[in-house]
Design a protein around this nucleic acid. Structure first.
Lengths: 215, 215
DNA sequence: GGTTGACGCAATGCATACAATCCTGCTCTT
DNA sequence: AAGAGCAGGATTGTATGCATTGCGTCAACC
């Protein structure tokens, strides 16, 4: 583990946990002394975080935590819906039997976990979900889809920790995955496209519902 | 102009002009001495180029020029088509009269340049085209659409220099822009979506045609 | 002859020092 | 009292030196 990676993870975790509030100014020296490393790896980590959309760099001012209002987050889902739907359609045409079994195994794991009401690892589901979506993006054979969608996905994890699905919504999500697998088996690219698009836009709608009621 | 920016532009131009061939290994010291600067800004430039998709960084090995086969490039167009179509639809609902006039002015410039057969600046059209698309992305109010689409667009400029549109194709492209503006005036988001999607997929098809015949 | 091990080298990773630039608060002036 | 100018400080930009790590090569052993 390099010092840059440590700095990256540290700042990222601080942003996600709310220790660094939005629009807060972060200096290189502050973080460097906090971690006991030099400015060089910290500087590099901040650049990477900015490239990944977590920070905004202002020369001679400092890195400020990117303020992520609701519109910002919702837009990432809208874009992801298009990209991943397209990827699912491509994947449906290229997927092999072995890859289908691989995805099915992931779905089994997720459903088995949902059955146990006392979920041992609360973030396990989101990890498995990420794996599933990532694998489909890889299978699609659209390298840029993989790049951009994973960026948006990791950025969305930010709020997923605050906004948990309830039991009914988890069930629906699992059902979406099953239908998607069905579409893959049939090599039905139109169905795959539509299911994936609905799957993500549904998540966005749930997010919107959870975000609008508290206010 | 910082030294990092100089290094960034230098390496980028070398990649685009073919001076650095794909899969070539680039050392930090090589470029640093070539430009007469220290390793530090070069290092930072290489990171940025990797973040923008031009390079791939391998720890303790070096930066290698990302091999961009045809599939890779084509996939960027497919993704862009979806993103920018969605952005156009959103823009159609939010655009103001002033912004429409602004876009119309850009279209006028592009068409006026097309009329003069002796185009003074060969890359002027691609610059104007970039401005037009970027402005629409901004108007869409989807920040992530702007981020991802511009990344893909800049990456695609790479081959646009080798693959020029002929007169007929330029005319068609201008016509697309005009219909898009028409859709904006009518606030017709469906039309805007479809026109933009077709516009980009057409460019991809032309690219494919130009790429398959030489072989 | 093929394979595995170690050693040397080259390149990156990191730390520190210095320079340039910009922001900020204060003061002086109007 | 409000605005402009200036000085101080803080932050980033760059250079350089040392530490670390992976890779290639050569030789020895199987």
């Amino acid at each position: 583990m390099t010092a840059m990676q440590r700095a990256y993870d540290h700042v990222r975790d601080c942003i996600l946990s709310g220790r660094f509030s939005p629009s807060e100014r972060l200096g290189e020296v502050t973080i460097a002394t906090e971690l006991g490393v030099s400015r060089t790896p910290v500087r590099e980590a901040l650049r990477n975080l900015a490239a990944d959309g977590f920070l905004e760099l202002r020369p001679h001012v400092g890195a400020i935590v990117r303020p992520w209002n609701f519109e910002e987050l919702y837009s990432s889902f809208v874009i992801r819906a298009d990209i991943e739907a397209q990827a699912a359609a491509h994947a449906a045409r290229r997927i092999t039997k072995e890859e289908i079994e691989e995805l099915a195994a992931l779905c089994d794991l997720m459903e088995r976990e949902s059955d146990h009401d006392e979920s041992p690892a609360p973030q396990s589901r989101s990890t498995l979900n990420r794996q599933l979506h990532l694998r489909i993006l890889q299978i699609s054979g659209l390298p840029h889809a993989e790049r951009t969608a994973t960026q948006l996905m990791d950025l969305a994890v930010l709020t997923m920790t605050f906004n948990q699905f309830d039991e009914e919504e988890v069930h629906r999500s699992n059902s979406d995955h099953r239908i998607l697998l069905h579409a893959f088996r049939l090599k039905d690219d139109l169905l795959a496209h539509s299911v994936m698009r609905t799957h993500i836009l549904t998540a966005a709608a749930i997010l919107r519902a959870g975000e609008e009621t508290p206010q």
